[in-house]
């Protein structure tokens, strides 16, 4: 279900970043948002409850975003969930690594509400085209 009612999981170790992303998502029309503070906790939540979309940071303790992404893509139940990487890591090798791991899009912090919306829309458009 990729529409304004989709359930989004925001993963970031900084509580402030989670709140910022949550508020921006709410502002662009996504109200069904939950949070996790690292990749490991996110994976637990994803295995317990169905989510439609994941927005994750890269640098986190326990399990970084790139590992979370790989775990999601490995799991038959989770592998179809679109993942947007939201990170301060703007090195080309990071982007390439994320793409190879199966990221749907990548946005560098800090970002605007418009930039976030554009990337989410792009992902939704592409997923729908493949359905």
């Amino acid at each position: 279900m990729l529409d304004n009612n989709m359930k989004i999981l925001v993963v970031d170790d900084f509580s402030t970043m989670r709140r910022i992303i949550k508020n921006i998502l709410r502002e662009i029309g996504y109200h069904n948002v939950e949070e996790a503070e690292d990749g490991a906790k996110a994976l637990e939540k994803l295995k317990l409850t169905p989510f439609d979309f994941v927005v994750t940071d890269w640098n986190m303790p326990n399990m970084p975003g790139i590992e979370l992404l790989k775990e999601i893509r490995k799991d038959p139940e989770l592998k179809a969930i679109p993942v947007l990487m939201v990170t301060a890591e703007s090195q080309k090798e990071n982007v390439v690594q994320a793409v190879e791991a199966g990221v749907n899009n990548y946005i560098v912090k800090p970002f605007t509400a418009t930039a976030l919306k554009e990337r989410i829309d792009l992902i939704i458009e592409k997923v729908r085209a493949h359905e």
Partner: peptide
């Protein structure tokens, strides 16, 4: 909100 996120970076 965007400007506040600078602290994280």
């Amino acid at each position: 909100f965007t400007f506040v996120s600078f602290h994280d970076l």
